[in-house]
Structure formats: C-alpha cells, structure tokens
Design a protein around this nucleic acid. Structure first.
Lengths: 231, 231
DNA sequence: CGCCGCGTTGAACTCTCTCAACGTGTGTGG
DNA sequence: CCACACACGTTGAGAGAGTTCAACGCGGCG
C-alpha cells in the first residue's frame, strides 16, 4: 500500500499506533505519549529474520501489522514452529527477563510494521506502570497455557486428532467454517509435530470422508465438524 | 518429624517462612509481615489432590516444603506430567490471571507444607509491589521456556535423546554424576513423552553400553556423559 | 517466463506403543 | 513384627502409526 520502509509516522500517528497495542491498553494518553517518544517503528520485508539462536537481543518487538513465526531448531536439526504472532502481539520478552542468548528464531511471514523498544525502557515501564507488568503477565501466562496444550496434545493424541483439533480451532477463531490457513502447510505440519507428508495424507483422508473440502493449497471448508471432533 | 497438620507457626516463624519465598524476595520486612498476616500454612499429606480439571481455584499456592506434580489429561485419556514444583515455588497463578476453570491437575508427591494466598490479595500485591509482578514474570517466563524445550524435544528428538538429555540435566542440577530421580520412573516417562516400558528399555540399554549404572529403582550414576550427550 | 520451493503421492522401514506376564519393594494392617 | 497386597518396574513379543526417501506436479515470486 505504498509505505516507505522507515519511520513515516508523525508524532500523533505514532501515539495512536502505540495506543492500539494491548500491552499498553491500561495507560493514560500522557504515558502513551512518553512511550511513543522512545519507539522506533520499522517496515520489515517478508522473510526477514528478526533474530536467531545465539543472538543477544536488547529489544522488545511489537508487531503493528503483519505476522511473525517463532520457531526452534532441535539438536537433531528438526525445526519446530512454536507460535505465530500477529498484529498487537510482542516478542523478545524472554531476553528482557532473563538475558541469556535466545535459543529460538523469529522470521516475518509477511511485510510487517514492527516497533523496537529498548529493554531498559521496558523494564522501567514494568516497574512504574503495574498495568504493563500485569498485561504482560496475562499474555505470557496465556502463551504458557497454549504451549502446554501443544505439549499434551503431542504426547497424548495421534496425528489425526491434532490436525482435526487445529482445523476446528481455526474455524472458531475466524467464526466461519471456510477459511484460509494462516501459514504454509509445512509450517502447520511443524506446529502440529508431524511431517508435511503426514499432514497432506490426513487432510486428503478427511476430504475423502467428506469432512472437509480443500480449495487450492490454503483454503479449507469444514463440512462435518462433529466427525472432526470425534477424530 | 512430628508436625501437626495445621497452623503451628507463631507470627515471627511465619514471617521467616514468607521471607524465604523467592516471589517475595524483593520486599521489606514490613511488607513480608503484611503478607504473612494473610497467609494460611497447611500440612498436606502425600498423594493429596490440590485441584483437578474443572475446579475453580481462588488460591495461589506456595510450597514451603515437599513437592507437587502438575499434569494434564488429554481427551484420549493420556496423562502428561507438565512439571514438578518444589520448595519455594508456587502454583495456581493461571486462575489468578485468567480465571477460567483449570484444565490441569496438581497432586503432592510428598507430605508438603503449603501456603494458600487469596487471589484478591495477590492481585493487590502485584499492583502495589512491582517486584512481585516482576518476579512472577521471571518465573512464568522461565516455565514457558522450559515447556517450549519439552515441546521441541518431543517433536524433534527420539526417545533415547530425550532420556539422555534429562539425565544430563539432572546431573547438572545436582552438580553430581550420581543422583536419585526426583520422581517415580513412570512420572519421568510421562514427563518425557514415552511409556514406562520404553524408558525402562532405554535405561537398560544405556547401562549395557556402560554409560550409566542403576542402583535400586531411583539411583543413577552417569559413567560416560560424553556418549550420553551424543545419544 | 522460468525456476525454486511447496505440496502430493507411493512404498518401505523403524521406532515406539500395546498387551501380557512376571518380579520387586513399600506401606499397611493384623 | 511379619504377611500380604498393590503399585511400580521390567522384560518379551507383536502390531501399527508415522517417518523417511524418492519422484513428480504445480504455482507463485522474481
């Protein structure tokens, strides 16, 4: 949409940008303005690696538009997608709290507008504004729960169940039975702890059963949610 | 050791108990005393279920002595041990932050002295004492990282590697090559995402290779860490 | 328009689970 | 204090789900 790659916001637009970030939702206009003064928004092209394992990362990153894939690479070389973050979400908080070298990777999945916040600044806000700390606690806690969900599903459910559950959760999130996968199938596969081949075969199986319909490589229609739920 | 099951602490002993909790390590003596006044320590027998899925849990629990196993049960019925908490650690914070019904279980693995803190009180401390919020953030963030570790290991490493890595992490934690498993083998198996049979076979294999030695059902000596690391 | 990465399909393999039987130790009650 | 019981742990054999390796078609980005 014709954005320049750089800071093309004037001061009030920047305030508005910061005000839309859930992490700062409890703050007053003055406090928002203070933070906006410390913030550096950047347009980042698709496919950019924000950081990798071993990097020291003195920034908290806030995603205004676009999306970011966070993943790990096990010693065996296997890549696991941990989560995908979208507009309003942040990443890089781990280094803020326990400043060891990061062991995960982050890459943009689409062109994204991302703000960088200095760790020292954020730590200052955490101490001065309890609502910021509390909101961050809420967010991290929700991530922990979701990661625990993935873990117990991986340990306890078979591939078909995990895939079906994932489709149902997408449908619920979008409020529709027809939707596009938010990430490439290979990333879905990694996120669900299966190989792309297995994902492909299971989806083909679901389609054969008449439970879903696939159009192109991304669009999926759920035709029989009840059967999927029982899968 | 002859403890009564009930509150057998006098006021100053209670202060000392609270002062030893890492969550409150940043607070002054007066602030500790204030919290101690709100706290109810309890002796809980081994094997007691603290809460289960579906329970609404208006308490943050702090473990003074003993240990607690936190686990989930997947829809398939499969039990997954998420983590084991020991002295100084807390549980029940999820309900505090997003008060939905809990979907996990907690049970004491040994007789434990546990404090109950009202959610309303804790929320109050979080807002008034930034160091409490910050320490909680540190803790939850470390748990998130450890859960992500489990997840990527489960998705990317085979059973032998996970077991070897677990043994090595125990040795590092204790600072010795000889140690006792902190939990029963069946719980270790669940934590590592394998069946007890597989764990037993792999440990027997390690022993056959001369990498470890088992004594009784709990004690393990690491004889060749380098080989374990390569497993 | 060309190319590379993604997705799909097939076939063989293997790791782990499942089911079953047996041994062991720990805690409890007589 | 001993006997028993039950949960835990071990070992064996068999089955199955998912992976791996390979080839091919397609489509989207440059």
């Amino acid at each position: 949409m014709g954005h320049h790659h750089g800071s093309d916001h004037d001061a009030s637009a920047l305030d508005a940008l910061v005000a839309r970030v859930p992490l700062f939702s409890g703050l007053s206009a003055e406090q928002i303005h203070e933070i906006a003064g410390r913030v550096r928004p950047r347009w980042v092209p698709r496919g950019t690696q924000l950081y990798g394992a071993g990097d020291v990362n003195p920034y908290l990153r806030i995603i205004h538009t676009g999306s970011v894939k966070v993943y790990r690479i096990a010693e065996s070389g296997h890549e696991t997608v941990i989560r995908v973050l979208g507009a309003g979400e942040f990443l890089g908080e781990k280094a803020l709290i326990s400043p060891r070298a990061s062991d995960h990777f982050a890459v943009t999945l689409a062109e994204s507008e991302i703000c960088l916040l200095n760790h020292d600044d954020i730590r200052d806000y955490l101490m001065r504004y309890p609502s910021v700390a509390y909101t961050m606690l809420e967010t991290i806690s929700a991530r922990l729960e979701s990661t625990e969900d993935q873990l117990s599903a991986l340990a306890g459910e078979d591939a078909g169940s995990r895939i079906a559950a994932y489709l149902l959760s997408l449908a619920e999130e979008y409020g529709r039975a027809s939707f596009e996968l938010p990430i490439a199938k290979k990333d879905v596969a990694s996120y669900l702890g299966v190989t792309p081949e297995t994902l492909s075969r299971r989806l083909a199986g679901f389609e054969e059963q008449g439970w879903i319909r696939q159009q192109g490589h991304r669009r999926i229609d759920l035709l029989d949610r009840e059967s999927l739920r029982r899968a």
